[in-house]
Structures are given as structure tokens and as C-alpha cells.
Amino acid sequence: MTTTIISERTSIAAQRIEIADVSAYYGSFTALSGVSMTIEPRAVTAFIGPSGCGKSTMLRAINRMHETIPGARVEGSITLGGESVLDRRVDPVAVRSRVGMVFQRPNPFPTMSIRDNVLVGVRLQGRRLSRSDADDLVEMSLRAANLWEPVKAILSKPGGSLSGGQQQRLCIARAIAVKPDVLLMDEPCSALDPISTAAIEELIANLRRDYTVVIVTHNMGQAQRVSDATAFFTVDGAGQPGRLVEYRDTTTMFSRPVDPRTADYLAGRFG
């Protein structure tokens, strides 16, 4: 049994994430090298950069999802509200119950009902809910995900029956139902049409009030619209490690980038 340093909590406590000298490896390949940054609570932080720059790897290290990939390992230090995430003695299951994640492709449990999809995280944590508490939590989470109105009459239908955009909002509802300290989003709109994308972006703007949100996106317009701070990652070439180039508030980043590589990338002159 692994001991848990990450402690129990009952309400949302958006936490600051401190990343110090983090490097990531897939086998002998260095995917990411020497990243240090502080991600502020109750704000949206966007990770942008070309494919292969390590931004998704960085994101997945925050809830130790990289451990699901054989041969992947991360060095350095990541702390969440002062508590170490990467520490071997910390149970990754405990980390993930405090750091929610939304993926590129909507992945609700397809045969599970919409209601159960929302409640699954809470049930995994072994919390017992009365029927009415569960109802309240389902409604609250779906409302927060802007999905309550379209699904309130079909809560017992399977999650797989919704449209792609609705499925993604269901995944967000599922992630926030456990009141995570941090919400990680890995290109949450890249599989969605523009209308669904707009709905998710609006939702992210609302989530900022309560959560620490980190979003990976290929869409620079999106980074500009939804984020408070932006981190630009890049990679010098194939086989090279990805690096954090520039990290500052989004407005400054997009209007007066300091590093020439950032300026080139934002201007579409990358390559």
C-alpha cells in the first residue's frame, strides 16, 4: 500500500502548481527538458506550440497520466498546493482524484447512463451520496458544463448516445463533479465542430472562477480567447527535446512576445 501524502479535502480548493526543472523521457528519448513554471490558481493557462514540442507530455505529467505509457518517466518536481505529485510514495490514484482531465476525443463511458457518467468519479472515491445529493450533484455538474438543459430529460440514456460536442461537455461535467483542484484539458476542442468549440470555450471561461485550468491547444485563437497565461513550447528538430520558450500573461504574449521563436510561431512563420 502506497502512503498518501496528498490529503483529503471536501470543497474546491483551486491549487497553485509549481513545476521545477521537469524533464520527460520515453525510453531513451528525451521528450521534454528542463521545464520550470508556476501555474496560478483560478486562472486558465494555455500550453501552445508545434506538434512534438512536449506540451501534452507536460500536461500529462501533472496528473501522472504519463505512467500509463510503457517506458515513460518524468524527472524534476511538480507540486500541487505544496504537496509533491511525482513523489514515488504518492499514490497516482490519489493525485488523479484531485486533478481532473479532459481528453482530445470525448470519452464518456458509452454504455453507462449520462447520470452515472457524471457520478462515476465520486463513486470511485468511495463517497456515499443520498439519492437527492446525487441528483443535486448531477444537476450542478451538468449545469456547470452547460449540458443540463439538453439532457435533463434523458439522464438515463447512455453517454454514447450524445453528439460529439455534448459528449465532451459530459466529460467536463464528469471531471468537475469530483470538485478537482485542477482541471487539465488536452486539446479538448480538436475533435469538435466550431459551434461545439464555442460552447466549450464559453464553459472554460466560466470554469476559471473556481478551478485551476490548464489547456493544451493547437488553436492560437483559442489560447488567446480563453487563457489568462500562455506557455509556448517548441522543439528544435526531430529527436530533440521539447522546451518551454516563453511563459507570460496571454495579452502580453500575443501582443509583444519577447523570444523571436515565439514571435515567429504566433505570426505563422514557424518552420
Binding site: V93, R96, G121, L124
Partner: peptide, 23 residues
Amino acid sequence: ALREAAIALGSTPWEVIRLAVLP
């Protein structure tokens, strides 16, 4: 994607089986 959905919610290996693999 289904396995990751379960893992990211804080599932133990058995819970991944119950939520993703068996269904």
C-alpha cells in the same frame, strides 16, 4: 481513450477493468 477516461478519474487497475474493459 476509455482506459484513460477511467484512469484519469482516479481508478485503480481493477476499477479500470470494471469501468472500461468489461463493459
